[in-house]
Computed example of a mutant assay.
Amino acid sequence: MRPTLTHLALHVPDVEACVVFYEQFCAMRVIHRRAGKGSTIVWMAEPDKEHSFIFVIMPGGQERHLAADDYSHFGFALASRDGVDSMAQQARRAGCLVWEPREEPYPVGYYCGVRDPAGHYIEFSYGQPLGPGAEPMLTT
């Protein structure tokens, strides 16, 4: 039997702020909400992916402060370069843009970075060999 990645569980300082962020920026939606640890535990997923991969958002976390050279992030693919530019503009207005749109050699592609309310970084990309706009991966 091989393992399958099904979820990421995140302790965050403000569950509701993170729910709003992931709804607005990542088009995720709440698929389950229950009481837990003095607050609410929320499961979120992209539409039609509720049975394959979710985020579990839990209370009690500390805000993350990443070093300038720490590129830890969650990656979301967009369907176009314009989508990346639009996401960056939305994040700029919200005060949470951390990486201006930029182009990197294949397989990285065109991307920008956004900070969620808990301090996690989210990359929005186009042109990677994953998700919308994917190109076949070249092996070397």
Rank of each mutant, 00 (worst) to 15 (best):
K49E: 04
D85E: 14
P13G: 08
L138A: 11
K37D: 13
L10E: 05
G113T: 14
G133I: 03
S52G: 06
H11P: 06
R93A: 15
G127T: 09
G109N: 06
P105Q: 02
G109W: 03
D69G: 06
V15A: 07
C112K: 03
R33Q: 14
M137V: 10
V108K: 07
A79F: 01
P13V: 14
H65P: 00
A134T: 05
M58S: 15
P105W: 01
G95T: 08
R81V: 15
P132N: 08
T140V: 10
Q89C: 08
E46H: 09
D85M: 09
L97D: 04
Q89M: 11
P132K: 02
E103G: 00
E103T: 08
H32V: 05
P129G: 06
D14Y: 02
D116V: 06
P3G: 12
G83M: 09
D82C: 02
C96D: 13
G131D: 11
C96G: 04
K49P: 00
G109Y: 03
W43P: 02
D116T: 08
M28N: 05
H7D: 09
P3V: 12
E135R: 06
T140E: 12
K49A: 08
D85I: 02
Y126D: 02
E63G: 04
Q24L: 14
C112H: 10
V12Q: 11
V98Y: 01
V15K: 11
T6V: 15
M137A: 13
Q62V: 12
A134P: 09
C18T: 11
G113K: 05
E46L: 13
S39G: 15
P132Q: 07
E135D: 02
R2H: 09
H11S: 13
C26Y: 04
M44D: 08
L66I: 01
P132F: 12
A27N: 12
P132A: 09
S86R: 06
T4G: 01
D48T: 10
G61T: 11
Q24I: 05
P136D: 12
K37S: 12
F76D: 10
L78A: 06
E135P: 00
G36T: 03
D14S: 03
P117K: 15
H65L: 13
I57T: 07
P59Q: 12
M87P: 04
M1I: 12
H11T: 14
K49N: 10
R81Q: 15
A45P: 05
G75K: 11
V20M: 00
H73K: 10
G109C: 11
V20P: 00
A17N: 03
M44R: 08
M137D: 01
R34C: 11
G113W: 03
Q62N: 13
F124K: 02
P13D: 10
D48A: 13
A79C: 03
E100K: 03
R92F: 02
A88P: 01
T139A: 01
P105C: 06
H51P: 01
Y121A: 11
M58D: 12
D70Y: 03
L66D: 02
G60M: 04
H7M: 09
E63A: 12
E16F: 03
I57N: 01
E63F: 04
